[in-house]
Amino acid sequence: MERVFQVKFSDYHQITRSKTMLAPISELSTIFEIAKALFESIELENHTIRLLGISLSNLDNAKQSQAIQLPLFRNGKMIF
């Protein structure tokens, strides 16, 4: 399973970071930690972000689950 984290800046410059896992992951907390680590690896000083994107590919379809929208903000504060 591959996770891709994409950041688009206000000047239309964009960067992509990815991580490929050897085994399927089903825990939301694990997916969150991988996305957080990829985000923290990006140099953000003097940059304004206009878009953050996280994509998952090669998902294991053995177990059907309902898609959910993850919150970016909790109680007015960024989760990261």
Rank of each mutant, 00 (worst) to 15 (best):
R17L: 10
F32T: 06
G53V: 03
K63E: 13
G76R: 01
S55W: 07
S10L: 09
A37P: 00
Q14A: 10
A62T: 12
Y12G: 00
S18D: 08
Q6D: 03
E43C: 04
T30R: 12
L22N: 14
A62H: 13
L22Y: 06
S41P: 01
L59K: 01
I15N: 03
H47T: 07
K8E: 14
A37R: 09
E27T: 03
E45M: 07
H47R: 15
V4F: 03
R50A: 03
K8T: 15
K19V: 08
A23C: 04
I34D: 05
P71L: 09
T16P: 00
E33G: 01
E2A: 02
N61Q: 06
G76N: 09
Y12Q: 07
R3C: 11
L38D: 05
R17Y: 11
V4L: 12
V7L: 11
E43Q: 12
L38W: 02
H13S: 09
T20D: 06
I49Y: 07
N75H: 10
L28W: 08
G53Q: 15
E40D: 13
R50S: 09
K19E: 14
E43L: 08
L70G: 00
A23F: 13
F39T: 07
E27N: 08
T20E: 15
I42D: 04
F5M: 06
I79N: 02
I34M: 03
S10T: 07
S57L: 03
L72V: 05
F39M: 12
K36Q: 11
M1L: 08
F9S: 04
F39P: 00
M78P: 05
S55L: 03
K77T: 05
S41T: 07
T30N: 03
S10Q: 07
R50N: 02
G76V: 02
P24L: 07
I49E: 06
M21A: 08
N61C: 06
S26P: 00
T16C: 02
S18K: 13
G53Y: 01
L51G: 01
M21R: 06
E40N: 13
A35V: 10
T30V: 13
A37Y: 01
R3I: 14
K8P: 00
L59P: 00
S10Y: 11
Q64H: 08
S29F: 05
T30L: 06
L44G: 04
V4I: 14
L28H: 06
T48F: 06
